[in-house]
Design a protein around this nucleic acid. Structure first.
Lengths: 316, 316
DNA sequence: TCTTGCTCATGCATTTCAGTATATCTACTC
DNA sequence: GAGTAGATATACTGAAATGCATGAGCAAGA
C-alpha cells in the first residue's frame, strides 16, 4: 500500500455516497448506475485496505474512517466547483457564475435588487447566492465573495469595509396602537419581545456590550433573523432589525430611537486569486456600491443618535 | 456548456501536463500513455469550449486561461494527497505519513534527531519533511504540521507556543584568531560579515527593531540561512545564527554576546481537523517536546543577556 | 547533411469499465 | 400474510477508454 493510485473520480463518488447514504441515490445524483458506484467504493476500500461503509439493505452506513475522510472530500468538491466557475468565465468577458455568501437577512432582503441590477448590466453573469448564517470558508473556495459582519482576519483575502449597518428596536404600527409605545428601556418589560432562541457566542458578545438592555423573557423566539423580521412585520411585538429594512415599510416604526442602537460593521470579502477575474471584480464593485447605498440610504433616518454602542461582531 | 461534467481525473492530468510541460512527460508521471493524456486534455478543452494549451513539437504551452485554473488544480492535488495521508493512517494506530513544513535551518539542523527518535518509537510512521523558507498553507493542506516563526493568525488552526529561539552573532574560532574579536558593535565595520542577499519584509522588520546594528556591507551574501550557517562554519566571517546550533560546535564562538541578541518566537501549528488523528497528535507532541528541549538546552548558554530585543516575526 | 532525441497526432486492436437485467433481502403497508 | 418499494449483489453484454504502433515535425550536434 505504498504507492496509492486512486482515481480522483473515486473521491467524488465516495463523497456522493457519503452525502446520499446509498449507492442507488449516489448513482442517480452522479448520472451513473448503482453497480458502477458500488464498484468505485469497492475499489477504494480495496486500495485502502479497510472498509469505508457497512452495507445494509437500507443503504451504506459510513464507518469512522470514512467520516474522517469527509472533510477532505468536501474541499475537493468545493475546489472543483470553484475551478469550473473560474473556467466557465471566459477571458476579459463578464460571464460565468459567481457564488456569493451572505447572511439570510442580507441575502434575502438586501442583495436581490442589487444583483438584479448587476445581472441586467451583464446578462451573461450567473449568480449563485448562498444565504445562510453559517460562515462559509472563502479559503476553501466555498464561495467567491462573502458579505461578512466580522472583520476578516485571514491572509490572502481582499476585504473592503462598506460601512456599518445600524440595528435597533422596531415594531408594527398596529402593535404600537394596541399596546402603546414604550418610553424607556424599562418599559420593554411590559411588552411582547421578539428575540433569539439559542444564545450563541455572538449574541453573548452583544449582551456584554449593552448592559443597558433589560433582561426580559422573549415572547417569540427564533434563531432565524428572517423569522424575527417576519414576526415584527406581522405585528407580533417588538424586535431588533436593521433600520434600513424597517424604513422600507411605513407601517414599521422605530421603538425607543436613540436609546438603543448598535452598528454592525460590514465587510465585503473576496479571495485574492479572484481579483483579476472580471466576473468577480464586477460583482465585488457592484456589491460594494449597493451595500454602501443601502447603508447610506438609511443613515439619515437615524441621524442624531450617536451613542457609542460599538460594532458588534455578530449576527444579522 | 450549462451542465459541465468533467471527470475529476481530467483535473489531475491537466495539472500534470501543466507541471511537466508536455503530454509525454505527464504520461510518464501518471503511468499512462501519451495519447491518453492528450485525449484527456482534448476532452477538457472541448467541454470548456476554449483551448488550454498551444501545441508545439516541443511540448504544450499553457494559455492564460490554463494558468488561471492552476491554483485550483494545485489545491485539488494538495487535498487529495492529504486525504491519502489521512486514509493510510489506520484507526487508533500511529501509522501512515505526516507531512511537516519547517524552515530550511530548522528542518535540516534541528528536526532530524527529533524525528529519528519519533520514528524509532513508531516505526510505522512515515515522515515527509518539507524544508523550505516558503510558507506552506496549512489550510490548503499542503502540510499537516508546520513549525512557524510567525504567530498564526488564521482560525481553524491549533497553535502551540514552544518558546523563543535566541539568535546572535557567531564566528569560527579560526576566523577570530586571524582577525581578532570585536569588542563593540562598531568594530563589526572592520570585519567580514555574512548576511542576506535580498532585503525581504521580514528582514526590514528586524532592522527597524534593532537600530543599534551598524549598516555594514556584507562580504558574503546569501538568502539561504543554511548557506550563511555554512559560511560561518567555514570561517568566512561573522554571521547571525541560532545560539543552539552554534553551541553544538566548540569551534563556533559567540561574538559580542550580550550586545546583540534577538529571540524568534516559535510556534507549532496544526490544522484543527487533525487533532484526533493519532499520527499527527503524536508527531505534534514529539515536535513540541523536541523543540522545547532544543530551546531549553541552549538557554543556559546565553543566560544573563536580558536585553529587550523583542521577537522578530522573521526568518530562520 | 544526416543522425539522434524529443515532441504531438493518428489508426487500430484490446482491455477495461459501465450498463442492463435479475436475484435477494428488509421494512412497511394494506 | 401478501404486496410494494427501497436497498445491495451478481452475471452478462456492449461500448468506451486505453494502449500499441506508427508517422511526422522540429532542434541540436556530429
Amino acid at each position: 500500500m505504498s504507492k496509492m493510485d486512486l482515481s480522483w473520480d473515486s473521491y467524488r463518488t465516495f463523497l456522493t455516497v457519503l452525502q446520499e447514504g446509498s449507492l442507488s441515490a449516489a448513482a442517480r445524483e452522479l448520472g451513473l448506475t448503482q453497480p458502477t458506484v458500488g464498484r468505485h467504493v469497492d475499489a477504494m476500500e480495496a486500495t485502502l485496505g479497510y472498509p469505508l461503509f457497512v452495507r445494509s439493505p437500507h443503504g451504506l452506513l459510513p464507518t469512522d474512517a470514512a467520516l474522517a475522510l469527509k472533510p477532505y472530500a468536501d474541499t475537493l468538491a468545493a475546489t472543483s466547483a470553484a475551478l469550473l466557475r473560474e473556467a466557465s468565465s471566459q477571458r476579459d468577458t463578464v460571464s460565468g457564475a459567481v457564488r456569493i455568501s451572505a447572511s439570510e437577512v442580507i441575502g434575502i432582503e438586501v442583495l436581490p435588487p442589487i444583483l438584479a441590477e448587476l445581472h441586467a448590466a451583464y446578462p451573461a453573469l450567473t449568480i449563485e447566492l448562498s444565504a445562510s448564517d453559517t460562515v462559509e470558508d472563502l479559503l476553501r473556495q466555498e464561495a467567491d465573495i462573502a458579505v461578512r459582519m466580522v472583520a476578516p482576519a485571514q491572509d490572502a483575502l481582499i476585504a473592503r469595509h462598506v460601512g456599518a449597518v445600524p440595528i435597533s428596536f422596531h415594531a408594527h404600527r398596529r402593535y404600537i396602537e394596541r399596546r402603546g409605545m414604550p418610553e424607556t428601556l424599562a418599559d420593554l418589560a411590559r411588552h411582547s419581545l421578539i428575540g433569539y432562541d439559542r444564545e450563541t457566542s455572538a449574541i453573548r458578545a452583544i449582551i456584554a456590550r449593552s448592559p443597558e438592555l433589560p433582561s426580559v423573557p422573549f415572547a417569540f423566539k427564533a434563531d432565524s433573523n428572517l423569522a424575527q423580521l417576519a414576526a415584527i412585520r406581522a405585528g407580533f411585538g417588538i424586535g431588533i432589525c436593521q433600520n434600513g429594512l424597517a424604513a422600507r415599510d411605513p407601517d414599521i416604526v422605530p421603538v425607543l430611537p436613540g436609546l438603543f442602537e448598535m452598528k454592525l460593521e460590514t465587510w465585503l470579502v473576496m479571495h485574492e486569486n479572484l481579483k483579476t477575474a472580471p466576473r468577480c471584480r464586477v460583482t465585488f464593485d457592484a456589491l460594494a456600491k449597493g451595500l454602501r447605498d443601502y447603508i447610506r440610504g438609511i443613515a439619515p433616518a437615524v441621524a442624531g443618535s450617536h451613542d457609542p454602542a460599538q460594532a458588534a461582531q455578530a449576527i444579522v
